[in-house]
Simulated scan of single mutants.
Amino acid sequence: MKSPLHNCKRLCVILPSWIGDTVMATPALRALRTHLPNTHITLLGRAGLRTILSGLPIFDECVEHRMRGWLGPLSNLKPIRAINADAMLLFPNSMRSAVIAFASGARTRIGWNRQNRGWFLSHPATPPFMTTPYSSVDNYCDLTELALGAPIRDRSVQLHCSVEELATGFRLLDGLPMPRVILNPGANRLDKRWSTANFAALAIALRDTCGAGVAVTGSADERDIVDAIVSASNGAAISLIERDVTLAGLKGAIAQADLLITNDTGPRHIAAGLNTPCVSLFGPTDHRFTTLHETPSANNSEVAREWLLIADPFLPKEVIANHVAQIARMDRISVGDVTHAATQLLNAKLR
């Protein structure tokens, strides 16, 4: 049986909206390039995603378009139709993405049949029945397997840093003593954030226990959080916002850092894609939705690159942390536990 993408000359992939989800789509994108070497692959997504994926040899062009709201992408279909795609592959599960694909003029439109959107898809795929959380990495890969008619065995995430991004990252971290640790205290929800007091105490502990140079990063909207941590750190941390950090520069900085410590948000996935060790803090979001498959290390070391700290690690597997927010609170993760995890990962890297 031929795959839906058999003889496809121009493929358009609609990317997820969030940075982390886009990073988790890289194994599926890599498989598309491997199995469709002569197909022109266009990625369609919101502003900023091109920066995340730049330098990867897995696509031919990336079209950035306003994707928020119903009228956002539909208010100007000209650049979408100009892609002239034979086929559309939809990673988001939204009705909006199905309408975009239908309006694009592509004859082949492949996506999971969720939210009753099968009417807009030429190949609506039946989503797997799951009783426990299902990683977005596997969600995108499983859909792509159906589109290609071939298995995807390598499901490790991957990113690339350009020379310019590395140079910018070097300037951001300039002057920090080794080992260099980046703290990322932001998140898109308040209940996903570890407290500023804890991050400040962590910065002090890392300086005092291992002489680390600590930098705190965040978006412009998170300046108050970053400033509060730096102010309370007694000189143990600097602000990357004050050094004009950008998304491209953050990529370069994370690539050269010895460790990232972060809430459950985009920089965690950037670190995974760049093989930077990471301590990830999880509260009322179940870590199983974003399980990341690690690539084998260059020296075949068994040391993991990511250390997960979960607010309630003893929840039964049938209980989803998202549904028990009062139990899975971020304040249940102690500064001591994060310091221990950070020290272990730093020591493993130095060995």
Results as ranks from 00 to 15, higher is better:
I320R: 14
F199I: 06
G111I: 02
T246Y: 08
N188L: 09
V335W: 03
A271C: 05
R68L: 13
F59S: 13
T26W: 07
T217A: 12
R96I: 10
R243P: 04
V23A: 05
A197G: 09
F91D: 07
T108L: 07
P128S: 05
V214M: 03
T144H: 02
N139E: 14
D174T: 11
L202V: 08
A85W: 08
G48F: 07
L146H: 11
G175H: 10
A228P: 05
N38P: 05
L5N: 10
D191H: 11
V324E: 10
S122R: 04
R351I: 06
P313H: 05
N263T: 09
R189E: 11
L29M: 12
S301A: 14
L121M: 10
V163L: 12
F120G: 02
P127N: 05
N275V: 09
A255K: 13
G111N: 03
Q256L: 08
L90C: 14
Q158W: 08
T132L: 09
D224M: 10
S122K: 03
G169P: 02
L5R: 11
W18T: 12
G336K: 04
R96E: 12
A150W: 05
L146G: 09
P177M: 06
D60I: 10
I152K: 14
C210G: 03
L202E: 02
L74G: 12
A150M: 12
V214H: 03
D264F: 05
D312N: 15
A253F: 01
I310V: 15
D224Y: 04
E64I: 05
S17M: 11
R153V: 15
G72C: 13
S195M: 10
H340V: 13
A232W: 06
P79H: 07
H40K: 15
S17C: 01
D312S: 13
K317G: 11
A101I: 00
L202K: 01
A28T: 10
L259D: 01
T144P: 02
L202R: 00
I238L: 11
L36G: 14
S54N: 15
A328W: 10
A205L: 01
T196Y: 00
T339C: 07
N300G: 15
E302I: 10
R223F: 02
T132R: 15
I100K: 10
